[in-house]
Amino acid sequence: MSTHEHHDHGHDHSHGHAHDHTTFQPDIREPSEEWEFLEIALRELLIDKGVITAREVQDQIEAWEKKSPEGGARVVAKAWTDDGFRQRLLEDGNAAVAELGFEIEALKLVALENTDDLHHMVVCTLCSCYPRPLLGVPPLWYKSREYRSRAVREPRAILAEFGTELPETTEVRVVDSTADCRYLVIPRRPDGTEGMSEAELAALVSRDSMIGTATAFAPDGEGRSG
């Protein structure tokens, strides 16, 4: 049971909010960092004061956990096969992905196309901004202090660690997602994929290739392709 099992429910219920008495069990069982205690305190206060319910917190977590990189892979595969869609995606990311049923509220979605000459790699040095509606919950390494500090300074070293070797003639452009935009990388379409269906192509589009630490898989299943 969580450390909050013995939470005191002796508070005054006369504030008019209908308690459902659902409790919220956090994923992290043993908080240790200051921010974890802060999150617990804030969440419990908001629930106690009736601003949000425990059910809403749980529902929101589950809603985010249902999102996955398969969404982004569908977008990329369509961009690879439909040039009109690719153009619309580059011009207005939000409107283009809405055609496929993805709603990205408030934030501006920007698609970045990787080519032989230009390779984008996305980081958020200030926090962990990530296109969650298309890629789901970010990997832990994306949020790590190590990735966030190294990506902008030693991108070629990071790329090598992900097995991504690019020639010096390819410009590596590290894109720091510092504000109201979320970036989706469109990896370069691998060679030898002519005639493949959109669904077959989507299977080649890894999460990391849409962050830009990797390239899309080669069609022979050998991992990466240039």
Binding site: R153, E154, A157, E168, V172, V174, T178, A179
Partner: peptide
């Protein structure tokens, strides 16, 4: 311009940020 040679990058590499 950003690191003055002190990093693992190639001569033409770049970095962008979104700035108000």
């Amino acid at each position: 311009e950003t690191w003055e040679g002190d990093g693992a990058y190639a001569p033409g590499d770049t970095v962008t940020a979104d700035i108000y």
